[in-house]
Design a protein around this nucleic acid. Structure first.
Lengths: 152, 152
DNA sequence: TCCTAATAGCTAGGTTGCTAACTATTACTT
DNA sequence: AAGTAATAGTTAGCAACCTAGCTATTAGGA
């Protein structure tokens, strides 16, 4: 799959591509490190971690970690903090005592739902800047970009 | 500039785009957090920070921070560690005593040069997977993506 | 059955990111 | 010339990422 006989990119082209990819990365990183969302009091990484609980009421730590693309220790720590903050409750699974099941508290559920709804609105509006054709292209190209990035 | 009357994206389209963008983000994050480069002993964030010193022999901390899109305190700490590791030397500027000028040690310079060369090779090869037209599209679309991401 | 392997989390400790608050130098303004 | 504002880094402390090494439970094989 290593390609049709494309003309290899010039150094300038590579630089341009990397610079553009970096700009996107930096923007995403900045968005994540920006403090907790004002109203909901949840940071973007926290929302990302909890998001699956909007669909399923109770999930083990490992599931949330996988979905958020985060290591289990990271998920553990974040969930401990979220429990201390009254956003979730953790309990050992009765069926499998190795598992720790996570549930949203009523308060946490309300906050998360509100944040997700608002986020979806903003995102839908923001992507309006792309034409349907551009949206398709972008999805395709982004998928193609992942293995390139992974190489370092 | 908020657009020609594009059909607004459906929820499914938004999800698809976000998922693709997240995949790229996660890949880049993983590439960065992957331990120090084996041979050179420099991590990707370190290489990113030092990269401008491959072109200019001596730069102040703030310049390196800006170029790497990192806060000045972060750059300060990383450079302190790099100095302790014998990769750079820091000295106060004689012309402006507020500034701290950073230089690569001979050893650091050699390591950095080697790493950059190898990286460039890999990247040029990797981007060969894109046709010239795709490369142009990707640059355009990535630039357009930044403001969307920035909203959170 | 008992011993080993696999699975699920946790703890410990390191890096890279941030903001806030501080020091020191330089530049500006009156 | 003196006092204030702006600039450059540092320190301190927190969040979110990681790997390595640990414990406890479950599953599987001799």
């Amino acid at each position: 799959m290593t390609t049709t006989g494309n003309r290899p990119p010039t150094a300038a082209e590579v630089d341009e591509l990397l610079q553009a990819a970096d700009a996107v990365f930096f923007a995403m990183r900045k968005a994540r490190s920006a403090g907790a969302d004002r109203d909901g009091g949840l940071s973007l990484p926290q929302v990302t971690l909890l998001e699956p609980l909007a669909a399923e009421p109770e999930l083990p730590v490992g599931r949330l970690a996988t979905a958020a693309d985060v290591s289990i220790p990271t998920a553990t720590r974040m969930l401990q903090q979220l429990e201390a903050a009254g956003v979730v409750v953790r309990r050992r699974s009765p069926e499998d005592e190795r598992k720790v099941l996570v549930t949203l508290t009523p308060d946490g559920s309300e906050r998360l739902t509100r944040l997700l709804a608002r986020r979806r609105e903003r995102q839908a509006e923001a992507f309006g800047a792309f034409s349907p054709a551009e949206r398709r292209q972008l999805v395709t190209l982004l998928h193609k970009l992942v293995p390139v990035i992974t190489l370092g």
